[in-house]
Amino acid sequence: MRTLLDLVLPASCAGCGRAGAGWCAKCDAALAGPPVRVWPRTDPGVPCWALAPYAGPVRRAVLAAKERGRRDLAEPLGAALAGGLAELRSARRPLVLVPAPSRVVAARRRGGDPVLRSARVATRWLPDSRVVSLLRMGPGVRDSVGLTPAERARNLGGRVTTAPGRVADWGIPPNAEVVVIDDVLTTGATARESVHALGLMGLPTRGVLVTCAA
């Protein structure tokens, strides 16, 4: 179906709108640099890194993947995550990517979780790595758009949990390097609750890597 649509309506770049490709080389350059350390207002207690600011073509690509069903963007966004992780990881340790949780209703509306799709693409580029979907968003969490940092913290407080089971049940080795992956870092509330939930499970987090930071 996608091939047929491309014949009728040529693909346009999610970053700049240029016809001919879903993600052009010029926009891809916005994700080509090394990860940059960022300090969100709500400290998750571990280092946070971003591939780019939440602006320009990267912002438009994240929104297209999240709100407009552009599943094709999982490939370039996942490859960019892999590049950032290759810069940050300890080469001798297995790498475990844990996608940040999303609300069930939001994931259903989007036809799946774009962060999970990108994380899976990233592991294809990285040796000795895997994705483990451990985090869950509990009931009662509102859409965070328009909330202040304090409201975001209250909205998420105690509502991020982990899937049932022990660390060993998920096949995570004791020396694994665990990184939380997300698309956008705003106040840091989701990152903090994610790191906290993993810690309660007995799984220390090495850091947080996001596609872009606001």
Rank of each mutant, 00 (worst) to 15 (best):
A168K: 15
L88C: 04
S194A: 15
R89I: 05
P94Q: 08
R206F: 10
A100W: 04
C24E: 01
S12G: 15
P99T: 12
A14P: 05
D72N: 02
S133H: 12
A119T: 09
S144D: 09
L116N: 07
K66H: 08
P99L: 11
V180P: 11
M137G: 00
P127F: 03
A189E: 05
C212A: 08
A191H: 09
V58W: 08
L31H: 06
R60F: 03
S133P: 04
P101L: 12
R166A: 14
P127A: 11
S118P: 01
T123S: 13
V210S: 03
V58A: 07
G199S: 15
A50E: 08
D28K: 14
V178Q: 06
D183C: 11
R59N: 03
G112M: 02
R152S: 06
D72S: 13
D128E: 15
T211I: 15
A32S: 14
G188P: 03
V195L: 06
E75S: 13
A213D: 08
V62P: 01
T205I: 11
R124W: 08
R93N: 07
V98G: 05
A106H: 10
P127T: 14
W49M: 12
V195C: 07
G78R: 03
V58F: 05
P10Y: 07
Y54G: 01
T3S: 07
V208H: 07
R108C: 01
D128Q: 14
V36A: 13
G20M: 09
R37F: 10
W39Y: 15
V208G: 03
L85Q: 03
D169T: 04
R71M: 02
A86Y: 11
T190A: 03
I172L: 02
C16R: 04
P173Y: 11
G17E: 11
P94R: 09
A176L: 05
V208D: 01
V105M: 06
V98E: 08
D43R: 13
V195Q: 04
A29P: 02
G69W: 02
N155T: 07
P76I: 02
T211C: 06
I172H: 00
P34V: 10
V46H: 10
L63S: 01
C48A: 14
G33C: 12
P204C: 02
D43M: 11
P149R: 02
G83Q: 03
T211P: 00
R117E: 10
L200F: 04
V46T: 09
T205H: 10
L7T: 06
L135Y: 06
G138E: 04
A176S: 10
V179W: 15
A19T: 12
T205S: 11
A176N: 06
V58Y: 12
P76D: 09
A29Y: 01
A64Y: 07
V58T: 01
L51N: 10
P164Q: 02
T3Q: 09
P164C: 04
A122F: 02
T190Q: 08
R136M: 07
R68Y: 13
R68A: 15
A65V: 07
P139R: 01
A52F: 12
V208I: 15
T211G: 05
A213Y: 10
L31P: 00
P34M: 05
T42L: 13
G15A: 08
W170Q: 09
R110Q: 13
L147T: 00
L200W: 10
R136C: 08
L85P: 00
W39I: 14
D143K: 13
G146R: 09
S144H: 10
A213P: 10
V8W: 10
V180Y: 01
V38D: 01
A52N: 02
P101W: 08
C16E: 00
A91L: 14
V115F: 04
